[in-house]
Design a protein around this nucleic acid. Structure first.
Lengths: 251, 251
DNA sequence: CCATCTTTGTGCACGCGTTCACAAAGACAT
DNA sequence: ATGTCTTTGTGAACGCGTGCACAAAGATGG
């Protein structure tokens, strides 16, 4: 054990806060849509609405990148697209490998979102020999044995893990040893990696459980009809008052 | 006395912070693994390591649920599994519909993580008539026309959107109108929903772009000497109440 | 029953992120 | 040129989440 998991805030080199970085892709997407409609400029208010965030937050986010706006007018769409793309590192090519070509891996390989930006699926890797050579999304699947050489030859630094949970850590270790320093993990496991390696996880099960929690809370509030209490004031409250099950302390 | 508070204390009995809720599934997963190995009790230190978090954080998280631990011993695994499951609402059955049975939708339908907990795939829905009746993961795909009746008949309150971006908002609107109040969105779009509806999004493209940012930053630091760029100054310090981040001079 | 040891539960301080509110900056009309 | 109007950029306040450090609580052994 002793997982060396030390999630570095990493907010140091350039002053860009992590929360801002996480929103930049959102802005970029909205800006790209505007660009395709040939919209020349956009105000923080409009763009914020399109991205689903607060306009003040958006302006502060952009302020970390520099002063790219014009007061009284707004932001130049094309210029901002370029600046954000550059900031995110999307002006260069990022070869990516996907490990684990099951249902999910195949779905990811077919996902158009990859190629649209700077990402390119360099290789698909699977442990099943029966998969080897079989084309998925037009790319022939290669065997896990060749993982290291594939990484090296393609200069891959980003890996996507879509294997079963049991194989994830092992695959992760091999990817890291081969030189991968950023991992997107779809397997429902906590990966432990050395410092300097970034891991982001996408976990369907966790997301559903969080939704279930809120769903239960809503249902509880609905049913918790306290007599003589608020009867119609429950409309848009983000957080309702307690009104939860009484603490029945089961021993 | 005092009582300046005009509204809910929020720190009331059941005020579980969102950040804590997001970690509960993680703890639950680790605890389930321990349970399967018939481990009777676990300390906060051990469990925290397994879940990849700080032990103090874990203890504080559990303190929001109540005092379920025994000092000098730790936490009873089985009991804690039950308590967290109950808190997350996993002791009940949650029928879920998946809309958009493409590569991703099929992968989700096949994902075992659904059934393992309280979630049950009640129906698969797709707009393509050619898909209707075709079984995916043992469940026949139904047409979008029947969306409303499917939701109603199965009492579905959680919907998963795995359609192309262009169809997502429309599907979302129909789901909400039909009574769904929690949505897990895999389409790369910002969904707008009325108050009272929860949306969580899973966006592969965004995750990759965030990784690319950090990857670029690592590469930049490695090269260390980019003109007009890297100017890293403060790292950690007393941290004054200043604004931080001197303006970066755009080239 | 008392001493000691282990581990929980939490008060407190700190830093990050969000939001408000407004001065500064520029566009535009007269 | 000057005044007005629009929108940015940001100082400041606030709230949330995190982690430290320690007292309280209970187990365990003599």
């Amino acid at each position: 054990m002793a997982t060396g998991r030390t999630h570095r805030p990493a907010t140091r080199s350039r002053g860009i806060p992590e929360a801002t970085v996480a929103r930049l892709p959102l802005y970029l997407r909205a800006l790209t849509a505007l660009s395709e409609r040939s919209v020349p400029t956009v105000s923080s208010e409009e763009l914020a609405a399109a991205a689903g965030v607060n306009s003040a937050k958006l302006r502060k986010d952009f302020s970390y990148l520099g002063s790219y706006g014009t007061r009284g007018v707004g932001y130049d769409v094309e210029y901002l697209v370029y600046q954000i793309s550059r900031e995110l590192g999307l002006t260069q090519d990022w070869p990516v490998v996907i490990v684990g070509i099951g249902n999910l891996g195949a779905a990811l390989a077919n996902y158009g979102g990859f190629a649209s930006r700077g990402f390119r699926v360099a290789a698909l890797i699977d442990a099943d020999p029966a998969m080897s050579g079989k084309p998925v999304a037009g790319i022939p699947v290669q065997h896990t044995d060749d993982l290291e050489s594939i990484i090296a030859e393609n200069g891959v630094s980003i890996g996507v893990i879509a294997t079963p949970a049991g194989a994830a850590q092992q695959v992760c270790d091999r990817l890291v040893a081969a030189g991968v320093t950023s991992i997107l993990n779809f397997a429902p496991t906590v990966l432990s990696v050395p410092d300097g390696v970034d891991v982001r996880k996408v976990d369907l099960s966790i997301e559903l459980q969080i939704l279930a929690f809120h769903e239960q809370r809503k249902a509880g509030e609905e049913a918790a009809g306290e007599p003589g209490a608020v009867l119609q004031a429950r409309k848009e409250s983000g957080k309702g008052p307690d009104g939860d099950v009484p603490a029945v302390m089961p021993a």
